[in-house]
Design a binder for these strands. Sequence first.
DNA 1: ACTATATAGTTCGATATCGCACTAATGGAG
DNA 2: CTCCATTAGTGCGATATCGAACTATATAGT
Lengths: 143, 143
Amino acid sequence: MLFNEIGIIEQLSRTFLEARLPDGLIAPHFSVLNHLIRVRDGGTPLELARAFQVPKTTMTHTLAGLTKHELVEMRPNPDDARSKQVWLTDKGRKLRDDTIAALGPDFDRVAKAIPADKVATILPVLQELRIFLDKDRETSRFP
Amino acid sequence: MLFNEIGIIEQLSRTFLEARLPDGLIAPHFSVLNHLIRVRDGGTPLELARAFQVPKTTMTHTLAGLTKHELVEMRPNPDDARSKQVWLTDKGRKLRDDTIAALGPDFDRVAKAIPADKVATILPVLQELRIFLDKDRETSRFP
DNA sequence: ACTATATAGTTCGATATCGCACTAATGGAG
DNA sequence: CTCCATTAGTGCGATATCGAACTATATAGT
């Protein structure tokens, strides 16, 4: 039931987000932009793939899309010639900020329906679950 | 942050599940089988699409995959000639049960890491959130 | 009963996702 | 230093996802 609810909420939130995104961009594009701002940019594609738990080929594809729209810039990684760095462009920053702004009313409605303290209650548990699953995946390396 | 965590958990749980599924079947296939058992079979494709909040074209495709593997059966809906009914086959029931069994050890590890009462705490909030988002989507029918 | 609108499902084309296999570069062992 | 296992990223093919447009049927308004 837990994972069921999570799957449906993921689907719903994706639909909400994509309704606010310009044509040609979908949720993963925004998620990456958001991550680059919230955490830091300049990291490698593989770091991003790990952060979102997607295969690296998927991240290559997503970054190609972002690059095509000039929202990020790929530079060679000076520390490792195999590797690259992902940097935000001004356009990328702006798009992310504009999207957040456009989502404002949506968030407001959610916040009115589900008070922040309720969210604050479940967030740590979700984080704990996410961290556990992540570790368990490496550990049990299932057969 | 909330939706971020949910997105990552969805991704992780999908990977866990798919590691236990036979070749050619992915998470949405299992989710539908599971729903048909947990709720009921004999419903229409559109009901399923709504339950999972996916576009109906996606559900058509998923059901085609399940039909090809003979895990479900599509019958005409006697009450509405436009419509169909989705019924489980014995093979479908068995596959779902086998998969649940195969997931047992995974669930055990999760249960040990995150006690059931913690899950019980967050589940109602997630349900509330899901129900709200669902209603809001219809209501605000965003422009 | 007749017409207009709405609904269930499919088809089609564009893009996304992912596993597999590959190349290039790295880093550790001898 | 050399070899070799490992790692970062990409190319490719198969399947998945989704929006737009379409067909067939149902239902509402008159």
